[in-house]
Design a protein around this nucleic acid. Structure first.
Lengths: 340, 340
DNA sequence: CTGTTAGCGCATTCAT
DNA sequence: ATGAATGCGCTAACAG
């Protein structure tokens, strides 16, 4: 539907109609302090009558605050980032900020483009997921923005900006320990982009646990497609030291591992047990249900947003690196005798 | 990280540094028409040197266009709406629009709040999912916005605004026919909020198919929790005319139906077959895999966004009601002898 | 407590 | 093809 923009009432119109100066009306808009109660009531009534809505562009131009927070995530269809966006929106809104959403497809160039758009829109703060490979250009552009910034899920090299991440290392270490405690000896870490900070940390954690237990760290990164996952798994199944457990480094590889084991009729968890990093819908519904490392997305997101808002309010000035603990959600696929 | 806002270069600074008037610089920003080639190059160089980025607030104030599109969806964590948001963002961006995301929790009051926020930000167009119950206040506020509007997934009463929806009625009708073709005689339609347009249409379509076939329409709307779904299903399983098929009216009820049948060890699809409305991750991975009605979300979203952009460009003025066809994705749960 | 005034940065007549 | 001048709607001194 198309609509002709009517003549909207301006602050001046309100002032005139109420028989007061513009300052007073402006004060009412901004909380009504130092305004006589009757005056305030009158002006509010006039504003309602005229359907007055302040023009944010004008406010922004004058006040140098756009009441806007920029959000850059790789993709909004990834449930992990979607939940981040959801939480950020809610908390930002509580402080009268509005979220402008831009996605980066995890591409460095897109991310730079996004930053430029945000520069033009003069956002007051930025929440963002850094691209796989942080370039020097990225750092430059972040500085140029000259607003508070908090990175999410992955830190930015240099500790120059605040970040909120999961305890990928520790969580992976604990997950693998859990498999070792089940008596598993040959554990395959499967899948994930090795350029990703989170994946690298998880591999590092898993490797730590394995070497500490005197076990070999088996890692196959290429498992983003069913074929590749199957090849990787079957390679290790037919080797002399057959694997007896798989640690899925992220959602996709966990699900593919599950499918491969199902299709190959390899008993799970009896013959091969499975733990995945990241919970997912239906992880508890599949048979066997899948044991996973569950990140506290809500807490991650809330922490990041609050930290940003604190920075924006000037309450915190030094950059902070915050890590949020994940927990193991024990289901059936690891070998624990639990119900689904 | 906190940052002090540096003195950003303004259009005036650029003009001065380039030794030209502000008009010429403004022309360069807006496409560079009617500017001598050398001049254009020089100004662009100066802009780059000064890291000049136009202030959108000022442009908006002056031009009455914010280069902003408002997007209201019930929730960003719902994969259906997330994909809508993703597609909208991409297409909006191509036309140099930025998307401001607001969620409504499917609450009428939130939606009104969202509209007010958008009114202040002077969005140039609105994409939105109407709340369950459209009030007259909603219509008023939509009109007051006085910008092009396209509703998504659900129409707005009155055909006053454009809408893009799925062919819920027809798709449901076809799905139930498919079950009837399999020789199923007692089909239970399960779950969904009866206040939702989409659900009502699906029930209507299913009912149509059933009555046309001389079958009774069995409908149980209360199945949003496992307990309720189980009670509803088992009630119809133990009745004298046992159900032999279930039509899940939306994701959640389909999944719950699947779980109930699994837990009760009711052979699927032999004893009871299942079709769900809406595809979902792992629908093809579960055993048996689930046959679903798959909406063309990408097409829905693209159509809605393009329609809005067309309205905004003034290329289309009359409101349009567009319906996008869904298709049946045949897997195992309906009884078809297909591989998973 | 309240009004007057002066820009914020830009797009746009209107000249030239 | 270019420049000077005006004002978009609002906030923030400042004066009262």
């Amino acid at each position: 539907m198309t609509g002709i923009r009517r003549n909207r009432a301006t602050l001046h119109d309100v002032a005139k109609a109420a028989g007061v100066g513009t300052t007073t009306v402006s004060r009412v808009i901004n909380g009504g302090r130092y305004v006589a109660p009757e005056m305030l009531a009158r002006i509010q009534r006039v504003m309602a009558e005229l359907d007055y809505q302040p023009n944010e562009a004008a406010r922004s131009l004058k006040s140098e605050r756009s009441r806007t927070i920029g959000l850059i995530i790789p993709s909004i269809t990834d449930p992990f980032f979607a939940q981040f966006a959801a939480v950020a929106e809610v908390h930002a809104r509580r402080q009268d900020y509005v979220v402008i959403l831009l996605t980066s497809q995890d591409k460095a160039q897109f991310e730079l483009d996004d930053l430029q758009i945000f520069e033009r829109h003069r956002i007051d703060g930025l929440l963002f997921v850094p691209p796989r490979s942080g370039t020097k250009a990225l750092l430059q552009n972040l500085r140029r923005l000259s607003v508070p910034i908090v990175s999410f899920d992955r830190p930015i090299a240099g500790r120059e900006f605040s970040s909120v991440t999961s305890d990928n290392y520790t969580a992976a270490l604990n997950a693998v320990r859990h498999l070792l405690d089940h008596g598993r000896k040959r554990i395959l870490c499967l899948g994930g982009d090795p350029n990703l900070y989170t994946i690298r940390e998880r591999v590092r954690g898993a490797t730590s646990a394995l070497t500490a237990a005197g076990r070999e760290a088996l890692v196959e990164m290429d498992a983003s497609e069913y074929q590749a996952a199957e090849a990787a798994i079957m390679k290790h199944m037919s080797a002399k030291g057959k694997v007896d457990a798989i640690f899925g480094l992220y959602n996709q590889s966990t699900i593919l591992a599950y499918e491969v084991l199902q299709n190959r009729k390899i008993p799970m968890p009896e013959r091969v047990s499975l733990i995945g990093f990241d919970d997912f819908a239906l992880a508890g519904t599949l048979r066997p249900s899948i044991t996973v490392v569950k990140q506290s997305i809500e807490e991650l997101a809330r922490t990041a947003t609050q930290l940003l808002l604190n920075h924006m309010a000037g309450e915190i000035t030094a950059p902070q690196q915050i890590e949020i603990a994940s927990r193991l959600v024990v289901r059936q696929s690891c070998g624990c005798p639990k119900a689904g």
